[in-house]
Amino acid sequence: MKLLIGAFAGALLAASSALTPAVAQEFTKPLRIVVAAPPGGTSDILARLIAPELSEAVGQPVVVENKAGAGSNIGADYVAKAEPDAHTLLLMDVSTLATAPWLYSDLSYDPTNDLAPVTMISFSPYIFAVNPQLEIDNVEALVALGEEDPRALRIGNSGIGSATHLAGVMLGDHLGLDWTTIPYRGGSESSRAVVSGEATVIINGSTATLPFVKSGQLTGIALTGDSRLDDLPDMPTFGELGLAADQMGSWQGLLTTGGSSEELVERLGEEVRRIVESPEMQARVAEQGARTATGTSQEFSTWLADSTETYGEIIQQFGITIQ
């Protein structure tokens, strides 16, 4: 009798394990988070904070790999062309995905179909700041200075076609300013330039810019996004001032290869949102001047489609090309 029960239980177990794959898909091998930026930046730090917890949640090792370059397009292209099994993830500032189709005529992947949004992770606003030697701290004074001496206003950005460049172009047009645009290789070079006075104006991510504003090396004028920063409660938002480009900023999102099983994508989204929404994680993200911003893959897709349209209009209106 005992033997019979044992055999029965064994058969049941075998049956259930044979059934499992059909019921719930599992992660069968190590996952990779490809970071489309160099180590040490916002995307990289997020990936390295998320990786160990995601590994625990899905029961597989999670490896972080940096594939930087060509304005995040190298990393994006890599994930777009990976096996569509939801095991290769992409973490990046997703603004690039909205601008790349307009900037590169021969883009090697299709951001809409070759990549599947998993979840949004965080948002950090752009800060619009000036060198203190300009002795201005508001938009009216900036416009007045620009009319008096156009050469005094030199706006640095992180490279032609970067989101910070587009934000500068939109803002300059909105304010009717004839400022000199000076492109740099990335945000830390443009920050150096505006702190030293080589450039005098900058729009750049809060993670990089906030320390300079707090220490007085730069004067903050305004920031993008919906809310003021706890650290600098006196600095108004673009929205309050009615400025263009008020929703721009650094949006960190997680994607995977297009065509991956929706079930796995959904599961990843849930796990990552749970990790990101934990109080410790929110605190870590806040320390970098950002805030967590989660959203389902559906919401992310809609956001991406809308942004792609908006950026397309700007890029075509101002004739920005990089090829």
């Binding site: 160099p38 040490g40 930046g41 300079f212 707090k214 090396q217 870590r284 320390e287 970098q288």
Partner: peptide
Amino acid sequence: MALMLGALMIHGIAPGPT
């Protein structure tokens, strides 16, 4: 160096003259 500043920021220390 940028990476090291990133490590400082993780600990909530704003790099700069302060």
